[in-house]
């Protein structure tokens, strides 16, 4: 019942926003703009909605979503494949940690978009540049969070497995992976967020196709509606990703009740 009420209230909030938007648009930002400019810069939700159906049916939007998404998925997967073992190994070996930690401490605060020009110089204007930037942007939160999880593994569990004479991959499988899962999830969430941010930025400054590219074309042609549509679509994608990818796993982890 409580949940139902919360959903209703959330919907009312969104409707309010749409209402304010409509009023602001119809009145030319409350009389501050002349009607022609208002129509161009600030189209009302109905116009945007119509345009949305248009670009959706023509396939323009979906193709470009798919282009960005593929870049994000490929880049992110590579970041996981590299980052996860590094984080785990840092937790198992103090000297490996000592070697690698300064590099990570140095690289991780660098904003992911700062790599864009370099990536374009190295890889040209294409997928590879985008993927490189995504890897640079999303790897450090994955490493950092995995390492943090490793430090929180109950050392007695290792002792139990040592007594059972478990080898290293049994230890990873039965103890390390389940222990660090919540931290890894947090790292993945952050990493995926960074991945989307940098891929949009890269596509806006020159990497062809993708959602950032749609945004920049929108700007160049004065097409406000398409930029609004892209922004809203991005929001929806992020929510779906959160629910589909992380929601199910988190439910499962709650069952074990170890992370309260």
């Amino acid at each position: 019942m409580k949940k139902f009420k919360a959903v209703i209230q959330g919907c009312i909030g969104i409707l309010m926003l749409l209402l304010i938007w409509t009023v602001a648009s119809k009145t030319g930002l409350f009389g501050k703009l002349d009607p022609d400019t208002a129509e161009m810069l600030f189209p009302d939700p109905l116009v945007v909605g119509k345009r949305f159906v248009e670009v959706l049916t023509s396939g323009y939007l979906l193709t470009n979503i798919w282009v960005s998404m593929k870049r994000v998925l490929v880049g992110f997967c590579i970041a996981v494949i590299i980052g996860l073992p590094i984080g785990i190994f840092m937790g198992r070996s103090q000297s490996f940690h000592n070697y690698i930690n300064p590099i990570i401490r140095f690289v991780s605060p660098i904003p992911g978009v700062a790599w864009v020009p370099l990536a374009i110089l190295w890889f040209g204007l294409g997928n590879n540049a985008a993927i490189f930037i995504i890897i640079m942007g999303s790897m450090s939160p994955i490493i950092t969070n995995t390492y943090q999880g490793m430090q929180n593994v109950d050392s007695k569990l290792y002792q139990v497995l040592d007594i059972m004479e478990a080898n290293w991959h049994q230890t990873i499988r039965y103890c390390v992976i389940p222990s660090i899962l919540p931290y890894v999830m947090a790292g993945f969430k952050l990493g995926l967020g960074f991945a989307w941010r940098v891929v949009i930025a890269a596509e806006m400054v020159g990497v062809p196709r993708g959602m950032g590219y749609v945004l920049s074309v929108g700007r160049n042609t004065g097409d406000t509606a398409i930029t609004l549509i892209t922004i809203i679509t991005l929001g929806i994608i992020m929510i779906l990703m959160e629910v589909v990818l992380f929601g199910t796993l988190e439910k499962r982890m709650n069952k074990w009740k170890m992370w309260e």
Binding site: D154, K156, Q159, C175, P178, W256, M258
Partner: peptide, 9 residues
């Protein structure tokens, strides 16, 4: 062990 040390998962 005194504190059992079971695997919570």
């Amino acid at each position: 062990f005194q504190d059992y040390v079971l695997f919570p998962w």
